[in-house]
């Protein structure tokens, strides 16, 4: 999966977690929390979605690395090696 494909999947997961989020307005470098008022519940749901569709089990201690779209991509690329 290349970077663009990964981004597309992540955006889809994100809107699944928070259907009231507009993907077109998403700023990849800005934290979800600042953009969409994401809270810990959203983060947990996002982690669950990533686990289910990408098979990546993000430990709770790594949640901070999922704060924005860019950070997610970097984190996943690292995990995928």
């Amino acid at each position: 999966m290349n970077r663009e494909e990964l981004k597309a999947v992540l955006v889809e997961l994100l809107t699944g977690v928070a259907p009231d989020v507009d993907p077109a307005a998403l700023l990849p470098g800005v934290d979800f929390r600042d953009q969409f008022d994401f809270d810990s519940m959203d983060t947990l749901n996002f982690a669950i979605a990533m686990h289910q569709s990408l098979g990546v089990n993000v430990p709770e201690t790594d949640y901070a690395k999922l704060a924005s779209l860019d950070k997610c991509v970097a984190y996943l690329e690292l995990r995928q090696g």
Partner: peptide
């Protein structure tokens, strides 16, 4: 923290 570290995301608690 101990509990959440031992389970997959879907089983974690807030």
């Amino acid at each position: 923290e101990r509990h959440n570290a031992s389970v997959e995301p879907a089983g974690r608690l807030l």
